[in-house]
Design a protein around this nucleic acid. Sequence first.
RNA 1: GGACAGGUGGGUGAGCGGUUAAAGCCAACAGACUGUAAAUCUGUCCCUCCUUGCGAGGUACGAAGGUUCGAAUCCUUCCCUGUCCA
Length: 376
Amino acid sequence: MRFELQAECPDTGARAGLIHTAHGTIETPVFMPVGTQATVKGIPQRDLAGELDARIILANTYHLFLRPGHELIQKLGGLHQFMSWPRAILTDSGGFQVFSLSDLRKVTDQGVLFRSHLDGDAHLFTPESTVDVQFAFGSDIMMVLDECLAYPASHEAANRAMRRTIEWARAGYRHYRRRVEESGSESALFPIVQGSMFAGLRKTCATELIELDAPGYAIGGLSVGEPRSLSLEMTEATTPLLPRGRPRYVMGVGMPEELPEYVARGVDMMDCVLPSRNARNGYLFTSAGRVVIKHARYREDPSPLDANCRCYTCRTYSRAYLRHLFQAGEILFSTLATLHNLTHYLDRMRQIRQSILLGGFRNFLDGIRGAAVELP
RNA sequence: GGACAGGUGGGUGAGCGGUUAAAGCCAACAGACUGUAAAUCUGUCCCUCCUUGCGAGGUACGAAGGUUCGAAUCCUUCCCUGUCCA
């Protein structure tokens, strides 16, 4: 994996670049759709590559390890072949499940002891084992095991989790280097900056992690319940310390109007379940703000969801029809809604990228800020 | 014509003397959702009023009477529905 910096905004930290992987080139800044279980829920790979033109998607180590299992996936030719996705894949380590499955796990220095949410079986994830599992998948970008805390966390707890995350990153890296030497694999491994909402801890963590000389760095532990301003603050405290020539990935963000804010702070990659999950729940992002399609006001609305959107859903169907599909619990709704929301996110990122390349990002950002009355 | 079974809030369907404005589910109407245990979860869901409270009134379990301190729940008559028998 190689990062090529193409342009930098003179007024903000925004950058445009290219990430070259064994499974294609990714234009950054990029939003990566989340496909936890080797599927972006509701969207066929054909549309993901075609209509949406996503260059990279996420998958999850914990979920795929439990089902169908990394050995099965490896046996069937790796994750790309298994899921018929020839483009890039980033796999999360399962570190987020340390946070989201909090009552099913136990964190020790050695790793995370999980009880499967499927059948209750116990499994141990270590910094080394998650790397091995991700190698088995054949991920283009692997993530190191980290400890993601809920908000709020005490300074002491945050420090402990950060220390552990650094140790795990080092252990993961030692193992990763060994495996790369043996196999010649091109998979990249990203360490993750933690430190909860303490800028000092974030800085310490970033400083220690860059010693790993990783091909890219992630900022984790955000969007766990803290005020939006804090998430941006933590990002802002971290990105200046990260190497300029490596991509920065903020994990798990954000709302559409927040994307350019992260970009302005030097972030190149983002992912979030909001466009896909909210789509399934009837919450649609449009150029004119949110549309909660189940609202009675759309019952007889013949207009397209978003007149400014080029997606198949907006080109083809009325709000009234989409509402009907939602109310009736029809499967097609999820597909059409997700297709739209992801188009909204990906197009927004493409606009951001264009504005950086053309030198107009500052104006673009001001325009978003002016329109986003709801931004805190 | 006769014998059973039954009629409960928008729909289904519990309740079978007081803790019942009446469970649950569905529908309807809102809210939440940020490295996905999510096609999920939460709230509201008879009317009126206010000092918005496990508040005050008023209606309500086919209809009308009755028993009882108290009835959706027990009794009587009537109306209606389903099944079966003539």
